[in-house]
């Protein structure tokens, strides 16, 4: 089938590898220019002074924490419904990146909250829902480890991801639905960004840089997962050629 033709892991490696240098160059440029603007050019805030510069790493990390989960949710749906060969691998390869961005969002938020709000942490709806997101990522990775059979692991983790996906809109709208200590959205508010261009431009450069970084890292990690699967098949063949061949053949896509 045509869908599966494009999902061929070998084809993925062949098509994605030439993208990598471009993605890394873009990442270096975006983050390089973004950092210079964020640290040297962007103005201090009239209320928050220089501490506002934490925004340029905190906000992109927080955006990515939700974006990576959304990627995993789409991949999981595709894995469950269409049994797309790369879908499981995409979700699996994304999880540690998403978890890392979530840790960054929480930690940099904490470092920003202490001087501005007067506390490292509060249990308001926004902070709590982001902590739940971190636990979803960690639960996802733990669940993969709990299964020996990658097919079963793929199904179980995909279900977990989709159930947890409800948390993403909750994070996004928590600041509008309930009163929280965390302020409402600045950039994506209905009335347009309440941020001057001198702050918005470095923020967007950093955010796009985080995105290209994620894309490049994801390609590397998916390629690694493909190789890991090949290794496993080879090892099974070596250990028990007949049994491995039978198992593999019976598991062919329907």
């Amino acid at each position: 089938m045509s869908l599966h033709k494009f999902a061929n892991p070998a084809r993925f490696v062949r098509l994605s590898s030439p993208l990598l240098p471009w993605l890394w160059i873009s990442t270096a440029l975006l983050l390089g220019v973004g950092l210079v603007l964020a640290l040297f050019v962007a103005p201090a805030d009239y209320q928050q002074g220089e501490s506002v510069r934490i925004m340029y790493v905190h906000v992109p990390a927080a955006w990515m924490s939700m974006f990576v989960y959304s990627v995993m949710a789409v991949a999981s749906a595709v894995a469950l419904v269409w049994r797309h060969p790369l879908a499981d691998l995409t979700a699996k390869a994304s999880a540690p990146i998403g978890a890392a961005f979530t840790v960054l969002a929480l930690a940099t938020g904490s470092l920003w909250g202490q001087p501005m709000w007067g506390t490292w942490w509060v249990w308001d709806a926004r902070l709590t829902s982001v902590l739940v997101l971190l636990f979803l990522y960690l639960g996802y990775m733990a669940l993969w480890q709990a299964f020996d059979d990658p097919q079963k692991a793929g199904r179980a983790t995909a279900v977990l991801t989709l159930v947890g996906a409800i948390n993403v809109p909750i994070i996004k709208f928590s600041v509008d639905w309930w009163n929280t200590l965390h302020q409402p959205a600045t950039v994506s508010s209905l009335s347009g960004p309440s941020l001057p261009a001198s702050m918005l431009i470095p923020l967007l450069l950093m955010a796009v840089g985080f995105m290209t970084f994620f894309s490049a890292l994801l390609i590397i990690r998916i390629q690694r997962e493909i190789i890991a699967r090949k290794i496993r098949t080879l090892q099974m063949l070596q250990a028990n050629p007949e049994a491995a061949a039978v198992t593999a053949a019976s598991a062919e896509p329907s």
Binding site: A10, R83, P85, P150, A228, K230, I231, T233, A239
Partner: peptide, 21 residues
């Protein structure tokens, strides 16, 4: 086989270590 979707493998699992590399 490895390029097939449902090939039963995932991580470089540890249960096969004894026999392979």
């Amino acid at each position: 086989l490895a390029s097939n979707q449902e090939t039963p493998n995932g991580d470089s699992g540890t249960e096969d270590v004894a026999v392979g590399e």
